[in-house]
Structure formats: structure tokens, C-alpha cells
Simulated assay, not measured.
Amino acid sequence: MQVFTLYEGSYSVAADKKFIPFNPQTDNPKDRPGSLFIHVNPFLVKHGDKLLLLDTGLGYSNSKGELIIHENIRRAGFNPEDVDYVLMSHLHFDHSGGMVHQKDDGMELSFPDATYVIQRGEWEGAFTNTSSSYRTEIFDFLQRNAQLAYVDETGDFLPGVKHILTGGHTPYHQAWLLEDSEDKVFFGGDVLPEPEELIKKFIAKYDYDGRKSMELREEFGQMAVAEHWNCLFYHGKSRATGFVELGAEGQFKLV
């Protein structure tokens, strides 16, 4: 199994839910009070004869008007048209904006030949949720134009491709576990967005159920150690991927 990190950039986001590019080398965090600072890392996985995309980023374009995620897929040696399945953890804008390419004259599907795989409860809830984290105009366009596949609860979507209903970050957030004869790759979405969250035990205000997310991080960390998972961190700053071990004092550490 091959894993490629499709780094889309570093951003600050405040209460208005607008994602503003942020360069840690030149920009001062104090100029953006009340903001969170995040990296955005979708992932591309070559799994047997299938090409899988794990979340889609913000859908921002480069100076030439090309989607950054398309540019990164080409750098990895593939074409965007090669993507077979887009596996979504949830539908907040920083994970789902790249499902479409927004242009001055409208929208088009970013991956017209792919099937978008979404937890059914997350899809249904996104249309009625009043949070600005959800952009219903994107979902309306997908509903009319995209190949959609809905999954329920926890199960095997394809051989070696399991969706795990977690809740926590959103009521119907899901994680993905990919495996073949040699590797196990875990994508925790926003239940396990950064490696540091394995070490720090805290209840996050940005989660729907912060306590559940905290407990899930512990549970997934233990499983990652026992089963030698390669963990993918969507918002990882220090590192986007890594294996988990237990340190001398029983704390998780990334290797």
C-alpha cells in the first residue's frame, strides 16, 4: 500500500469559519487573535488496483486556477481522473470543500469519475445543520451531479477498506481503516487530527462530544500500538503520518 500526503497549506480560522492562509515563517499569530492555526493534509492511498482519496481539503486553487489538491495528486504521479473513491470522514468545509471546484461561473466536480463515500447520518444532518462549517450549496451540487455511496454504522465498504462510525467530532463522524497483506493504515479524521492529541488528554470545545473524542483517541492509540497502524493525521503540523509506540512511562509516542 502506498500513502501520499497532499498538503494543502497552513491556515488560521476564527469564529467566522473563514480559512485564511497563514505562513508560520512570515505571519505573526498575534495579528489574528482568537484564531486556530491548522495544517490541511488530505491523503491519497494506492490500495491494490484502487486509488483512494481520504477527505478533500478546502478546495482552494493555485495562482493558475488549478485546484491545489489536483496539483498535488499529479506530483504524486497520478491524475485526478484516476481516483476511484473519495472516502469522507465528515463534511465540515475544511474536509469537504475540495469535493467540488468552485469557479467564477459556477461549480464542477473535482473528481467526476470517482464515487464519494459518506456516512448516511452525516450527509442527512449536513443539510439541516445551521453551522457555517457546512456549505449546503456544495452538497446540493453533489446530490445532482456526483456518484454518491452512503454507508451506515461500521462495516467493510470494500475488501480491506473499513469505515468506523465514531461520532465524537460530529454525530456521524467516521474513521477509515485500510489494510492489505502487509500494511494497516488508519485515518482518524478529526477524532485524531494531530499526533500531539495522542499525548495530551483533553476535551476539545470544537467537538460535538469532546469526552467521547478523548476516549476514542486513547482507544485508537492502543489499537495502533497493538496492530502497528500507520496513522494519518489530517491536521498534523509536526508530522502527517507515523507509527505509534508506548514510551517507558506508558505514554504514546510517534515513530
Rank of each mutant, 00 (worst) to 15 (best):
G59Q: 08
L67Y: 01
S131G: 06
L142V: 15
G77Q: 04
F93R: 13
I68P: 00
P112C: 11
G155K: 10
E124H: 04
F127H: 11
L58R: 03
Y134V: 07
L51C: 05
R75P: 00
I118A: 04
H101K: 13
G59A: 09
L148V: 08
F78Q: 06
Y150Q: 15
G155C: 12
D140P: 01
G97P: 06
H101E: 12
L51K: 05
R74G: 00
I69Y: 01
E108L: 13
R135C: 04
I69V: 15
M88A: 09
R75N: 12
Q119V: 07
G155W: 10
Y85A: 05
F157H: 03
D84Q: 05
D104G: 13
H95G: 12
E153T: 10
A146Q: 03
T154Q: 04
H70E: 08
H92W: 12
A126C: 08
R135D: 14
V117M: 05
D140I: 11
I73N: 02
D94F: 10
A149T: 12
G125W: 04
R135L: 14
V151C: 03
Q147M: 13
E66N: 12
R75G: 00
E66F: 07
I68W: 00
D84A: 08
F93E: 07
L91T: 12
N129T: 13
D49N: 14
V117G: 05
K103L: 13
L58T: 09
L87C: 10
N62S: 09
I69A: 04
R135K: 15
H101Y: 04
S61M: 10
V83M: 04
S61Y: 02
G57H: 02
F127L: 09
